[in-house]
């Protein structure tokens, strides 16, 4: 039997899984290059939430040395995710820049239309 309080206690992880899978689905299923990037971002954000949840301890404080504080949350996953967020921003920026260039070169950002243009080119070339 699944314990109901357990389910609620693991709420963060449920959110992580839902976000991860919906983001992943959007990346695969969407044909629009911008929407794919949105999906990719949701996918990455789920990992951020995952790391942050993992470091948090109930009643835990920020890592400031003080006699009054006994329980600390683990700050390391939070710091790691700060790095991962920066990497994510860089990736998104680069992806958007590529989409701008693709739009200029093809006149569209729909994947199927781009593929149609590319197939035509290859047919002409052969």
């Amino acid at each position: 039997m699944i314990d109901i309080p357990d389910l609620i206690g693991l709420l963060n992880y449920w959110v992580v899984i839902v976000l991860m899978m919906s983001g992943f689905y959007v990346v695969i299923a969407q044909g629009n290059l911008i929407k794919k990037i949105v999906g990719l971002n949701i996918f990455q954000v789920s990992v951020f939430v995952f790391y942050i949840s993992m470091g948090k301890i109930e009643g835990g404080s920020a890592p400031i040395l003080d006699d009054a504080i006994e329980i600390y949350s683990n700050p390391l996953p939070h710091v790691l995710i700060l790095t991962a967020i920066v990497v994510g921003v860089a990736t998104t920026a680069l992806a958007l820049a590529l989409v701008v260039r693709i739009n200029a070169a093809y006149g569209t950002i729909e994947e199927d239309e781009i593929q149609a243009i590319e197939h035509e080119e290859e047919d002409v070339a052969c």
Binding site: V47, Y51, M54, T91, A95, V99, R101, Y106, E118
Partner: peptide
Amino acid sequence: DRRALTAAYRYLIMGTIGATFYIIGVG
């Protein structure tokens, strides 16, 4: 070739998914 742009974009999507899988594993 302009197809370099779409090739780079596809590699970016696949590569980022791969790297994100890697940090999920590390996490």
